[in-house]
């Protein structure tokens, strides 16, 4: 990974940490917008979710599953790219494989 990448990852970490230190309720923006919609006179939802996770735990399981599946594929693709550029290095320069 390039030096540039490390700095960018550090910046991402700061973007998450600073609001946490600053504090707040940290409710979801989707929910806040929904609350605003609910203030509309005569508003009623006309369709309910087909299935709702029975608890916050189950919900967080599916969110983790979503992130894990995605990360698995991204990680695999990054590994393949790494392997490809390594084998290309070998062909081009005839350097012996690094241990």
């Amino acid at each position: 990974m390039s030096k540039r990448s490390y700095w960018m990852l550090l910046a991402v970490a700061l973007l998450v940490i600073v609001p946490l230190l600053k504090g707040g309720e940290f409710g979801g923006a989707d929910g806040a917008a929904a609350a605003l919609v609910e203030q509309t006179e005569g508003f009623a939802t006309w369709f309910d979710p087909i299935w709702t996770p029975p608890s916050g735990e189950i919900e967080s399981m599916f969110f983790s599953l979503q992130a894990a599946l995605g990360a698995l594929v991204v990680g695999y693709a990054i590994g393949r790219a790494h392997e490809r550029s390594r084998s290309k290095d070998l062909k081009d320069g005839d350097t012996p494989p690094r241990a």
Partner: peptide
């Protein structure tokens, strides 16, 4: 979390 105190 975001600076507005909510999450997205």
């Amino acid at each position: 979390p975001s600076v507005t105190g909510s999450c997205s």
